[in-house]
């Protein structure tokens, strides 16, 4: 029976595909939250496999903060076209214009937290009952307690203390009207697994994941990509370096790291030797010790 085993990457793939098919079966109107980051790209890739040769039976939705790396948007449009999927773009700017949220001001202003309102509004307007996200349990301690099928009440809130137990691979997606689920097929993947899978499957990525020259701003031990959306003052040190993104999100809070990596294999070697977590470069997590839990309770990804 020696030959009847599959490798860890294939087992994670099989688990994620099982979860995606559960979503398509248990929910009437699911959606895949697509940020243009590597985790959501992997989700799109897996969705394409899960329903082969059919098209993906749910749309992809991008919650656009308006503060994007240009490469992400180009990549997004190509990727969606290649998958033959439907794309919905919902924008934080619209939420601001409608008065649903107020833009933060000052040096540390970011639209990251505002995304939650835009996301919940879009879920409500489109009547989505299951939103697939690329969050992983290894990313952050509050996410380590997250379920595959994570219940949200009618206010879009997460109740971490009253989560449904999840056993074996039986997922309970039953809900009342107005409630929805967040589903995380990559729960058991680590940053390393994602990169190894990208290498195994030869998945194309936005160029900013690889080392490139860029003007960066040093702030509180984190390097941010300089952009018109960032308020830079005389205390900030600005310089040009060869860097790459470890995560991709809103430009004002996504950090970059020094890197000469030009291939996925280079990145794998780099991830293997790195001693800082992926989210260590995320400004949004540094606001407090339970910053992620607090944002998640209120509807964040």
């Amino acid at each position: 029976m020696e030959k009847y085993y599959i490798t860890h990457l294939r087992e994670l793939e099989s688990e994620a595909i099982y979860v995606l098919r559960e979503v398509a079966s248990q929910f009437e109107n699911p959606v895949l939250l697509f940020s243009g980051g590597k985790d959501s790209i992997v989700l799109g890739w897996l969705s394409n496999k899960a329903f082969f040769p059919s098209k993906i039976p749910y749309p992809l939705m991008h919650v656009d903060t308006g503060h994007n790396f240009e490469e992400t948007i180009t990549y997004r449009d190509d990727f969606v076209k290649q998958l033959g999927a439907k794309l919905i773009v919902t924008s934080v700017q619209d939420s601001i214009d409608k008065g649903r949220v107020t833009e933060e001001t000052g040096k540390y202003a970011s639209r990251n937290a505002l995304q939650s309102t835009t996301l919940l509004d879009a879920i409500g307007e489109n009547k989505f009952d299951g939103a697939i996200g690329g969050a992983r349990r290894d990313e952050e301690k509050a996410r380590a307690k997250e379920r595959f099928f994570s219940h949200r009440d009618e206010f879009g809130q997460w109740d971490p203390k009253n989560q449904r137990p999840e056993l074996w691979n039986i997922f309970n997606g039953r809900k009342h009207m107005g409630e929805h689920f967040r589903v995380f097929p990559l729960s058991n993947w680590t940053e390393m697994d994602v990169w190894q899978y990208i290498a195994l499957e030869n998945i194309p990525l936005p160029s900013i994941y690889f080392g490139h020259p860029r003007e960066v701003v040093h702030r509180d031990g984190v390097m941010l990509a300089n952009s018109p959306y960032l308020q830079v003052d005389c205390e900030d040190k600005v310089e040009e370096l060869v860097v790459r993104c470890r995560t991709i999100g809103d430009m004002t809070c996504t950090g970059v790291v020094k890197s000469e990596a030009t291939t996925v294999e280079d990145i794998i070697q780099e991830v293997a030797s790195t001693r800082i977590t992926e989210r260590g470069g995320r400004f949004d997590d540094k606001r407090s010790e339970t910053a992620m839990e607090d944002r998640k309770i209120n509807g964040y990804f």
Binding site: R137, D138, E140, K141, A142, R143, A144, K145, P160, K161, Q163, S187, N188, T190, M192, E289, T290, E293
Partner: peptide
């Protein structure tokens, strides 16, 4: 404190839920 991620767990100093951890 590495595994006890939720606010209530950190406050009470106990593990309440299942926490998943990864290494290779």
């Amino acid at each position: 404190l590495l595994t006890d991620g939720l606010r209530s767990e950190r406050e009470q100093g106990i593990t309440i839920d299942v926490a998943y951890r990864y290494f290779a």
